[in-house]
Amino acid sequence: MSKAQETVLEIDLSALKHNFDYLKSKLQKNTKFLAVVKAFAYGSDADAIALYLQELGVDYFAVAYTSEGVVLRDAGVTKPILVLHPLPVSFETIIERCLEPSIYNWKVLDEFLQVASDKNQKNYPIHLKFNTGLNRLGFNLEDIEPIHSITNASEAICIKSIFSHLAASEDLTEKAFTEQQIRAFTSITEKFITVFDYKPVLHLSNTSGILNYPEAHLDMVRSGIGLYGFGNSEKENKNFIPVAKLKSVISQIHHIEKGETVGYNRAYKSEATMTTATIPIGHADGVGRQYGQGKGFVIIEGQKAPIIGNVCMDMIMVDITSIDCEEGDEVIIFDASHTAEHLANTAQTISYELLTAISQRVKRVIKK
């Protein structure tokens, strides 16, 4: 029986390389690769992930917020870093740390242009985000000429890329909508090139765009979830290896009599004599309450152990009545076989949410 000592998130860099190589195999030789490492690299370890991808030759990184980019710079990342959702309060930091902002509306454009001018910048790289149907962030087609008028009057900034984001590229029942987005972005790029008289880097595809829409790879692609081992479909998942393995340990075993209850609010009542194990991981670690009441399960000695009762802040209790195990044995929350996607499905959510919820108090161990 496998023994363990504590709750640990293992991060397998060989799996990361496998996923990176697979995604790269889908691209033309000259298509650039942007790695999305926001949210602690999807709940793993942004420093370790980014530094290794930098070794592997990734062209660009993207984060959501400026603070995430600062962490990468402090860790030694030298590749360009796109900040996808910068706020004006961080513009000075962006320039000081050589980060590149996504500019998505007039307020952000005006304020960044002012800060860049005040800091005597020349041709500071920015990226223009356009809305093609996700309706979250972005300029529209009719904004291109006014943007040209404003930016052409200043030498402080230069537009390094223009991009948009696909809303449903993983869902082939929405193929018509995705193709409509691709056409809309094509119209935007054609008008931009005509008005500005040069061609910036063009990027549109996320992980599922890479896999399902090769015509939309353009000059650069952006991958997040694919790097971490998920292809957004049963077919494609077979080509990826999940990077993260979350494991814990049986800290105590209880023998429960019929009619006894387990956990807070007496949420579980035993219908027969049973055995439970207490595991030191809970909703403060990212395993939310939605996984309780028998919905979620962990793996002990290769068998499913349902989570019973309510998930506690620091603990879960599982049914091990039919499992031959003992205190100190290893518990798999998710790994390459019992994946985060499998566990997330039990609570009707997605792997992204489960992965990014793993608390920073959970120890990270890097395997290379």
Rank of each mutant, 00 (worst) to 15 (best):
K269A: 09
T173G: 03
D285Q: 12
I126L: 04
I366Q: 08
G224D: 08
S337C: 06
P306G: 09
C325I: 02
V331N: 07
S223P: 01
F177L: 10
I150Q: 13
I144W: 07
S102C: 14
E174V: 00
H338G: 02
V249S: 03
G43V: 05
Q54T: 13
H85V: 12
H338A: 08
K122C: 00
E271Q: 12
L218D: 00
I332S: 04
G229V: 10
G259W: 11
I323R: 10
G69Q: 11
V298R: 05
T186D: 12
V287Q: 04
E330L: 14
F297I: 00
S223T: 15
V77Y: 05
A39N: 12
A168F: 14
C312H: 10
C98I: 03
F130T: 02
L343K: 10
F192N: 05
H283F: 14
S187L: 14
R73A: 01
L113M: 12
G302A: 08
F163I: 00
Y352F: 11
P306I: 07
A344R: 11
V115T: 14
A35V: 07
V201W: 04
L27I: 03
L99N: 08
A15R: 10
T78D: 11
E326Y: 00
G292I: 03
E10G: 04
I241N: 08
I94D: 03
S161G: 11
S359Q: 08
Y124F: 15
A267G: 06
I350S: 08
I188P: 02
A357K: 14
D143A: 09
K17Q: 15
T189G: 04
A48T: 05
I144N: 08
K119G: 06
I320E: 06
Q28Y: 06
D74W: 00
K107S: 04
F112M: 08
E353S: 13
V287E: 01
G226W: 02
A340R: 10
S149N: 12
T356N: 14
I188H: 02
C158P: 00
V365R: 15
I225P: 00
I256V: 13
K235H: 06
T194V: 03
G138D: 10
S233E: 08
F192T: 02
K175E: 15
Y124S: 08
N123F: 07
I182Q: 03
K38W: 11
V221T: 11
E96H: 10
A336L: 00
C98H: 13
S2Q: 13
A176Y: 01
K258Q: 14
R183L: 11
D219C: 03
P101F: 01
K199G: 01
V36T: 09
F297M: 06
K295H: 14
E190F: 01
L84N: 07
A48W: 07
S359Y: 11
L202A: 03
A167R: 12
F185W: 10
K79E: 12
S233Y: 07
N123T: 10
S169G: 02
T178Q: 13
H18G: 05
E155W: 00
Y213Q: 04
V311W: 13
F20I: 03
H338C: 01
A216C: 03
L34S: 05
S161A: 15
T7K: 07
N206Q: 09
D319K: 06
I225L: 15
S117A: 13
D110V: 04
